[in-house]
Design a protein around this nucleic acid. Sequence first.
DNA 1: GTAATACTTGACTAAAATACTAGGTTTATT
DNA 2: AATAAACCTAGTATTTTAGTCAAGTATTAC
Lengths: 160, 160
Amino acid sequence: MRLTTKGRYAVTAMLDLAFHSQKKPVTLTDIATRQTISLSYLEQLFARLRKAGMVTGVRGPGGGYKLSRAAIDINIADIIAAVDEPVDSTKCGGKGDCQEGQPCLTHDLWMGLSDQIRSYLKGISLAEILEREHVTEVAQRQGQHVEHVVNIQKQEKLSA
Amino acid sequence: MRLTTKGRYAVTAMLDLAFHSQKKPVTLTDIATRQTISLSYLEQLFARLRKAGMVTGVRGPGGGYKLSRAAIDINIADIIAAVDEPVDSTKCGGKGDCQEGQPCLTHDLWMGLSDQIRSYLKGISLAEILEREHVTEVAQRQGQHVEHVVNIQKQEKLSA
DNA sequence: GTAATACTTGACTAAAATACTAGGTTTATT
DNA sequence: AATAAACCTAGTATTTTAGTCAAGTATTAC
């Protein structure tokens, strides 16, 4: 499990998507504008997210992307795993025979730790993050812009 | 908080150090050999670890490195923070004014998540990891390979 | 059917991080 | 004095990151 800016971009984009795509699909152009990520880079990330079955593309005018599953069924670990190339961190393919056994000793230690982080992130869903940080903090500090968004969301929820 | 191969190298080296430096200092050459990390790369990492006050260099023949504190007082988050350049992930310096307020919404979300990971890793000490896999001690004494260690550990889990 | 909109693909690139190389200088032990 | 080790400085090849650019294909509103 690696934690890089690439993964952060993906999580950020997914959070944006979860937040804005409740009613209709969200275009990557919108996300790119809101999150100041380049469109083509987003396209790369979403190609992977789509292959991982986490988002669904809707073509044609009025199209965009939406979550394939409910936000509560999408966890952070899966998002990061989807965009990150899986790196073999063992140097011996997990065989345990790199060198006299010793090296794989610490490899095992690290991998155990890595697994813990993974399972920890697996326990956090998009929905939980949105809910946790939701209107409370950000809206207060922010004023009209976010309030506007929040209002729209509330209206959508009411009409849904 | 980033999780990269660099951080893994640092944690691995620190685990090795914690494991072997109980009596006398450990040379980087030893660690380099055991963990198959280049000596100069280790030097770079340990320069940072030393500046962070986690290890102490002992010069001269018979010298090497040792932990500055007890292994139980050194946590994983600090190790990673020591070798990783702190990247400003906000693009607005935490001011919250990147762009219309919106971007900082998700920035905050991610940073909150990042903080959780950090505090999680802060709760794990070198000593705990070594202890958790305490069988390694046995392996060391008996000169066995890790494959055996893993088997022993599985048996212990079964019998526990 | 056409145009608009949106997704797909692939090639390319500047900048940064990674991992290493080389060659030193101290410092302390023997 | 010889040596073993930390410690320092600079450079460098490779890979990854974070994009850009260009030319597609698919879908739907009209």
